[in-house]
């Protein structure tokens, strides 16, 4: 995969008033970026701005030398996949249905292809692929969502607290898998989490948000 480059220049995130101080960062493909911070510190808001769902107050998000605002919604979907920490209310949707939806960005249609199979296998959810959402646990729901983002097959993946409901072994396994994906396919994966102790050995970069300031803590964590 082409080596992706994400540049953040003077980014002010927030709704009307800035939530975080101006952010300037650069990331290249093959990175697993761990973002930590207390509840309400602005991790999710930051990820939503990166995904282009929220419009920044000022500054630029540049992907492969082109500002995010220049990409259409459909083009963005081929560059970035997003997982938010939220539930849905639909009784008759299966795990496989959700992962298949990840292919919409490529085909403008919901299809079962090799990417879907690989994502399901990677997240180890084969045994629940035909189960409805009300038949699976919160942890399995999170794995399903991550599988959907992986199936979207984008160079950048943004995950908001994907390990919140996972058991300890699953947390370790997920971070290991994410690192492997990031390195093997030259992707940028940004993960917000409270489980810093679990991913210390897996993250390639560590950002921390405190008192409205996002700092690169990579050196101190290592």
């Amino acid at each position: 995969m082409h080596n992706v480059q994400l540049d953040i220049k003077g980014l002010l995130v927030g709704y009307n008033t800035p939530l975080l101080a101006s952010i300037d960062l650069q990331i290249s493909g093959g990175s697993l970026v761990i973002i930590t911070g207390e509840n309400g510190s602005g991790k999710s808001t930051f990820l939503k701005h990166l995904a282009g769902i929220e419009t920044p107050i000022s500054g630029q998000i540049i992907i492969n030398q082109t500002p995010l605002s220049k990409y259409s919604v459909a083009e963005r979907a081929q560059l970035m996949a997003l997982v938010l920490n939220q539930k849905i209310d639909e009784p008759y949707i299966t795990v496989e249905d959700i992962v298949k939806m990840g292919r919409y960005a490529q085909y403008q249609s919901i299809v079962l292809d090799q990417n879907v199979e690989e994502a399901i296998k990677l997240m180890k959810i084969e045994h629940i692929r035909h189960k409805y959402l009300n038949q699976i646990s919160d942890g399995e729901w999170q794995k399903t969502n991550v599988a959907r983002a992986i199936a979207q097959n984008t160079p950048i993946i943004l995950l908001d607290e994907p390990t919140a409901f996972l058991d300890y072994p699953s947390k370790i396994a997920l971070f290991k898998d994410l690192k492997q994906i990031a390195l093997a396919f030259n992707k940028i994966i940004l993960v917000s989490t409270h489980d810093i102790h679990v991913c210390k050995n897996e993250g390639t970069r560590f950002w921390h948000i405190q008192n409205g300031v996002l700092t690169d803590n990579t050196q101190s964590v290592w």
Partner: peptide, 20 residues
């Protein structure tokens, strides 16, 4: 119909998947 089914995932996720 495919767009309507993706709206099940919520408007924010649907946007990130290329839907307005």
């Amino acid at each position: 119909m495919p767009q309507l089914s993706i709206l099940i995932l919520g408007n924010e996720i649907a946007t990130s998947m290329g839907i307005n």
